[in-house]
Simulated assay, not measured.
Amino acid sequence: MSNLVTQWYEDKKNVDEMQQWNPALKEWERTVIRCFPAGARILDIGCGLGREAFALAEMGFDVVGIDISKEVISQVKQLSAEKGYSIPFFDYDGKTLAFPDASFDVVIIWAQTFGLLYGDEYKQEFLAECKRVLRKDGLFSFSGHDLHFLQAYYPNCLNGRKFYPYADTEMYWETFEASDLTRFAVQAGLEVVLCEKGKIYKPEDGTILHCLCKKL
């Protein structure tokens, strides 16, 4: 992952502000998990401060969380202990998944983290890693910012396909059309189960794009 992204997420002030999230799963996430096997072992990539991991653990899933930020991992471990969870959280280098082949039933890259994997080559290499750690018939779910929604409602935050939600940083999220997510999945040799716009919490939140795939 780029130094720009890593530096932003290592800043304690930025990480502290991440604690102001809604702890519930988003509407589209609740839709996707209906496809997950009961008790599935899930790798949560870009786990942040544990919103998804905590919610999934409450539902009986076996979750492992990883993030590029040591500051994030330090804080989420503390939160996990305070909440009484036994979820393992690890920092990683943003490229290599330090797990054996076929270790997980499900891999997720939510919270639009996919848009922080700058460039097609990086995405393709990383999706190959995700596929490697998935078991046969395992599921891979990832999401990205919806280009058309942002063009309609936040054009001032866009520069081409780059979305800059924070005025005080050069860090951006890449944005997508549904066909982009499908293309990345197919290039990785994954079967696309669905690829669609998903609701967040309430209508004014708008939509994101998400794609669910299977390893054959």
Rank of each mutant, 00 (worst) to 15 (best):
Q7D: 14
G50S: 02
E52T: 14
F54K: 08
I33L: 14
F54P: 06
Y164A: 02
K12Q: 13
W21C: 12
G46N: 02
F149G: 02
A24V: 03
R132H: 03
L97K: 02
S86E: 12
D67E: 10
V106Y: 03
K131H: 01
M59A: 04
F114K: 10
W173M: 13
I33H: 09
K162N: 14
K26P: 01
K136C: 10
Q187Y: 04
M1N: 12
L212S: 04
Y118D: 07
E174H: 08
R132W: 00
E82Q: 10
Y118S: 09
A53I: 08
R30F: 11
G144N: 03
A55V: 08
K162G: 06
E10Q: 09
T113W: 00
L25G: 11
V107S: 02
I66G: 00
L194T: 15
L116E: 09
E129S: 04
T31M: 13
L147V: 03
D91I: 02
T207Y: 07
V5I: 14
F149E: 09
Q78S: 14
D120H: 03
N3S: 15
G119R: 11
L194D: 15
L97F: 04
G94D: 05
D146H: 08
G65Y: 04
Y85D: 12
G160L: 04
I33Y: 13
K13E: 12
C35P: 00
A102K: 15
F54D: 06
N22T: 10
A167Q: 09
V32P: 00
E196W: 04
E27Y: 00
R41E: 14
D67H: 03
D44W: 07
F140H: 07
K136D: 15
M59F: 01
A185T: 10
T169H: 13
C47G: 04
F163S: 01
L25Q: 11
L147P: 00
K215N: 08
N156R: 14
C195Q: 10
T6P: 08
E71F: 00
F114H: 09
L134E: 09
A38E: 14
A111K: 00
Y122T: 10
V193I: 15
Q187V: 13
D16F: 07
G206R: 09
N14P: 08
M18W: 07
V133N: 02
I73C: 11
R30C: 12
S86K: 11
G206K: 11
L127T: 03
K12I: 15
T175E: 04
L79N: 11
H148R: 15
T96D: 01
A24E: 15
C211D: 05
C130I: 04
F61S: 05
R132D: 01
G119Y: 03
E174F: 09
E17Y: 03
F89P: 05
Y92L: 05
Q75G: 11
K13P: 00
T6Q: 10
C47A: 12
E17A: 07
D101H: 10
D67A: 02
A185F: 00
C213K: 02
P37M: 07
V192K: 11
Y85R: 13
S69K: 13
P23A: 02
E204V: 06
G94Y: 00
E82I: 10
N156A: 15
M1E: 13
E204F: 02
D146C: 06
V5Q: 06
I109T: 13
R51A: 07
T182E: 13
A55Y: 08
T207F: 05
G189K: 06
